[in-house]
Amino acid sequence: MRRAIAVVLLLAATAAGCGESSSAPPRPGPGAAARFLDRYVDPDGRVVRRDQGGDTVSEGQAYALLLAAATGDERRFGRVWRWTRAHLQRRDGLLAWHWRDGRVADRQPAADADLDAARALQLAARRFGRPALRRAAGRMAVAVLRRETAAGRLVAGPWARRGRVLNPSYSSPVAERALVTLGHHRRWARVRRHGIATARALVAGGARLPPDWARAGPRGAPARSAAPPGDPGGVPRYGFDAVRLPVRFAESCDPAARRVAAALWPRLRAGDPAILPRELDGRGVVGAVRTPVALAGAAAAAHAAGDAAARDRLLDEAEALDDRHPTYYGAAWIALARTLLARRCG
């Protein structure tokens, strides 16, 4: 009961500024969240990608922080944050993205993890009455603005500033609105506007799905791109990165953000919505697989479009698929979708 109440309180607290309602929310997330936390978080607070060699990434730590805050699990939140701070946090406040075999394997940060972690710290500070968490959130938020933005846009990380490399699924309108309370109101408002405008331009009114990667041109207009050097993939596709965008935008109470997610629903419901990756016109690529995270993304688009029945069916199917073939990533985004889409607007 305590966890369910905490979810309701968290959602109400983060709904400030909402101006448009959609379909009734899905079932709250404590069950899915607890399954992810129980399965993938070690007792010391490390989130382990058990199906990917047992390593740890900063995004996973951030997901666990968000879910622990949402379910009122203060003890586990504390363990996850202590491990993250001790093993991943850099001197500038950002998080090294990759840890393996007892040490940091790559010190580069990833902007999505830093943004999610700052949001989680800010929410937990209020939920658990811990001012130190608010200070930690503020430090990380400032570091994101200083090191992971360029010309007012959230870029993929410090390495991406020069080329203005964007990962559209890193943008989180809700996180960017929440961090306004920590200061730098105008800068966060600009980051949020650019993130929504970038996604809207890339989906072209629903004619295409968003790509995993993009670049901001000299005049700011985004262009679809292949993965940056060092990453696999030769052409722009809707893949395991982009699939997160519908969830991040559908949870927002900003009508402009929600319309972006809703515009994806006709494409995502065509054929098998569990297939990933897809071409930007919606066709599955050769070698595409059925994966729970694709269903979570499609469910979010259905939610934004007001199709609650499809949303619930897709989330249930995602859970059933993940039960048969458990994955860290699928379990995380099922839990996040159930939790984040439960926010009420109005």
Rank of each mutant, 00 (worst) to 15 (best):
R3W: 05
R3I: 00
L9A: 14
L9F: 07
L10H: 12
A13M: 09
G17E: 04
G17P: 07
G19S: 13
G19K: 04
S21C: 04
S23K: 01
A24Y: 00
P28T: 07
A32W: 02
F36E: 05
R39K: 08
Y40Q: 00
P43F: 11
D44F: 07
G45L: 11
V47I: 15
A62H: 01
A64E: 05
A70E: 13
D73R: 09
D73Q: 06
E74I: 10
G78Y: 03
R82W: 09
R82C: 03
T84V: 08
R85T: 11
R90Q: 13
R90I: 01
D92Q: 07
G93R: 01
L94D: 04
R100Q: 15
D101H: 12
D101E: 14
V104W: 01
P109V: 11
A110N: 09
A113I: 11
D114C: 11
D116E: 14
A117L: 15
A117G: 12
R119V: 03
L121G: 12
Q122E: 14
R127C: 14
R127I: 12
F128D: 00
R130Y: 01
L133T: 10
R135E: 13
R135P: 00
G138V: 02
R139P: 00
R139V: 14
M140I: 06
M140G: 11
A141E: 08
V142R: 13
V144H: 03
A151L: 10
A151K: 14
G152T: 09
A156W: 10
A160Q: 06
G163K: 12
Y170P: 05
S171R: 11
P173K: 02
V174P: 06
A175P: 06
T181Q: 04
G183Y: 12
R186S: 14
R186Y: 00
V191M: 12
R193L: 02
R193T: 14
R193K: 10
G195V: 03
G195N: 03
G205M: 07
P210F: 08
P211Q: 03
D212E: 06
W213L: 07
R215P: 05
R219H: 12
A223N: 00
A226V: 02
A226I: 08
P228E: 09
G230E: 08
D231T: 12
D231H: 11
P232E: 13
G234I: 01
V235F: 00
P236I: 05
Y238K: 03
Y238F: 15
F240Y: 15
A242I: 15
L245C: 11
P246V: 06
A250E: 04
D254M: 08
P255S: 02
P255A: 09
A257F: 04
A257Q: 05
R258G: 11
A261E: 05
A261W: 02
A263D: 12
L264N: 03
W265K: 03
L280G: 03
D281H: 09
R283T: 09
R283D: 06
V285H: 00
G287K: 09
G297A: 11
A302Q: 10
A309T: 15
D312Y: 09
D312R: 12
L315K: 07
E319P: 12
L321E: 05
P326K: 07
Y329H: 14
G330I: 10
A331V: 15
W333V: 14
A335S: 05
T339D: 08
L341H: 01
L341I: 11
L341N: 09
R343K: 10
R344G: 02
R344A: 07
